[in-house]
Computed example of a mutant assay.
Amino acid sequence: MAITETAYAKINLALHVRGKREDGYHEIETLFAFVDAGDTILAKPAERDTLTTVGEFAQALDNPFDNLVMRALNTLPRPQGLDVTLEKNLPIAAGLGGGSADAGAIFRIVEHYHGLPEDWHFRAERLGADVPSCVKSEMAIGRGTGTELEAVENDMAGMAVLLVNPRIPLPTAPVFKAWAGEDRGALPTGTAREIAQNGRNDLREPAIEICPQIADILEELSREEPFQFEMSGSGATCFALYEQTAARDEAARRIAGAHPEWWQMTGKLR
């Protein structure tokens, strides 16, 4: 029987870069959150693994058979294959963990059919630093490169979310390379709301240097005075959180009218 999974869009409600490691990666502290919308994956048992990509951003995948969906399938032992259709609704290189979210959804699909191996976290970690968080797709604090996960009191579930992207891919590596190298302090403590309110995104300024449109989006998102607005991850997607759905929808309508070239998605925090 076929099943459908949402690859939930990942946003960073705060992202503190603490330093560069000897292995070239960066030490970070972040608050991962997930929106109840994203890519859609349909899967059914098959003799061998197959992948079909559809949706607005399907053509942006340079090699769909070498993306994180196929890599996730290849890393999980199973007695049978899966016929997978990926509806790519999230933009590529957008700070939303799109590929990692797709991989996380594959882990949940395999868990449904066969269960996961005991070392699933290690297998997820090898695919990408934020893949382990995307497997669960639950709000969590991430440390190290983002793979060390800690529980946090989620007092933000159900908040309305607006995501906006200028349709400009922004790969992670150049943004981290442009980071000034200054440790501006640890992630705040407390509930998710307290961390989100008192945290920051240390990659915002280096990302704006590469993609100035991010500053334009943040300015637009500030106008309805949302609970929080910030760039997600390494960009270029920005988010705004609202206590009331009507305020989010009004902001979405206004921004779509002023900037029809920008991509949008709405949802709620999980």
Results as ranks from 00 to 15, higher is better:
I255R: 02
H112P: 10
Y8E: 02
D155W: 07
L73E: 01
G104A: 11
T53G: 03
F32R: 00
I168M: 01
A186E: 07
G81Y: 15
L31K: 02
E261H: 06
S234F: 10
T30E: 05
A37S: 05
K44T: 14
L51M: 10
A207Q: 05
E111Q: 15
D49L: 13
A240C: 12
V35I: 12
T191K: 11
E5F: 06
A173C: 08
A129T: 07
V69K: 01
A173Y: 05
Y8S: 04
A157P: 05
I41C: 03
Q59T: 11
T189I: 12
M159I: 00
A14L: 00
R270D: 04
T147N: 08
W120N: 00
F34E: 09
L51V: 10
K44V: 15
V152T: 05
R184Q: 10
P64D: 03
I106C: 04
W263F: 05
P64W: 12
I3S: 15
D216V: 09
T52L: 10
A105T: 11
D49I: 15
P166E: 06
I11F: 00
G257A: 09
N67C: 11
F122P: 00
L218W: 00
L116D: 05
L203R: 03
N12V: 07
E29I: 08
P174K: 13
S232H: 07
L42T: 15
I11C: 07
G55L: 02
L15W: 01
G235M: 09
T172Y: 06
P188H: 06
L51H: 02
E150R: 05
C211Y: 09
P171W: 04
T266C: 13
L68H: 08
N198I: 00
D36Q: 04
R108P: 06
L86H: 00
A240P: 15
N63P: 07
G199R: 03
Q228L: 14
D155E: 11
A7Y: 15
F122Q: 02
L90M: 01
L162Q: 11
H121R: 08
A186G: 02
A178Y: 02
T85A: 10
L269D: 12
E225D: 13
F229R: 00
R167H: 14
E220H: 14
S137R: 07
N198K: 11
P169C: 02
T266F: 14
D36L: 04
E150C: 08
H112A: 15
E27H: 11
A192W: 03
N89H: 13
W179M: 14
T75N: 04
N67I: 09
T245A: 05
H259K: 13
I208C: 09
M265G: 01
G99I: 03
Q80H: 05
W179T: 14
T4S: 09
A129F: 09
T145L: 06
T245D: 15
Y8W: 07
G190A: 11
R254Q: 10
S222D: 15
